[in-house]
Design a binder for these strands. Structure first.
Lengths: 126, 126
DNA sequence: ATACTATACTGTGCGCTGTAAGGTATTGTT
DNA sequence: AACAATACCTTACAGCGCACAGTATAGTAT
């Protein structure tokens, strides 16, 4: 068989994936990323700056993103992070890892109750 | 609003959930749990004994499971673990936490490619 | 002027988790 | 007698999330 295995990093390390995913939409900076995450997570998850900045530095160290200082229109100094090709590959890989993790979790603890009213409605119609 | 938040333990700590879920089917012992996980994960995830025993001990320390030595039919000494009511509650809670994590992940990194060709087919039809 | 709030980045340090590595002992099979 | 499978355990390490604390600037309200 010789199937692909879950790396240990995937059991946790999801925050890195989240940040990479956000940077996929284009370069951004720490503070904005916090706000963006806050918006997308809709109150379920709240990651503070103390969480995100170290991760950004780690990602930079791994060459998955690059940093560049720039002065914004409002005169503020911002450190813009951008995905590298290597980071793009890492993101793709992380997605696969995440998918495998959900597979394993579903197989062991059972499927999660999904809010999919559309499918239900379609099912009712058909 | 005041919504429920993801606890930090849920970002990792999935192994505890896996073990609790397996013990939900009834009492078991370390070695058997390794094999059971191996079977259910179908090669995707491989947790060694060095991973599982410390977790079992931790769970016992948290009073989520209880341990009892017993001699099996084949004469071997086995340490059987059983879910406590508190462990049952923790498992239920962990499921909710896991569900929230998948929600956040899907919102940020997009949906996982699930083997659900039906939805695609329906979309094509409509 | 003064105080406050929002913006924006940084660093330190703790605790928990996963797990590799190594070890012991028993039973069954070759 | 040798080996594999069963069954358990401990030690030690590294990585991750995150709370906490600190610095500095721009804009707004009093």
């Amino acid at each position: 068989m010789l199937m692909k295995k879950l790396r240990k990093q995937t059991l946790d390390g999801n925050v890195e994936t989240l940040l990479l995913a956000i940077l996929q939409s284009g370069p951004s900076y720490g503070y904005a990323i916090v706000k963006e995450l806050d918006k997308r997570a809709e109150g379920i998850l709240r990651l503070g700056e103390g969480t995100i900045y170290p991760v950004l530095h780690r990602l930079e160290g791994k060459k998955l993103i690059t940093a560049r200082w720039a002065r914004a229109e409002n005169g503020r100094q911002r450190k813009y992070y951008r995905l590298t090709p290597k980071g793009r590959r890492a993101l793709a890989d992380n997605r696969v890892q995440w998918q495998m993790l959900t597979e394993v979790m579903e197989k062991v603890i059972g499927p999660v109750a999904k809010p999919v009213p559309l499918a239900l409605a379609i099912g009712d119609v058909l």
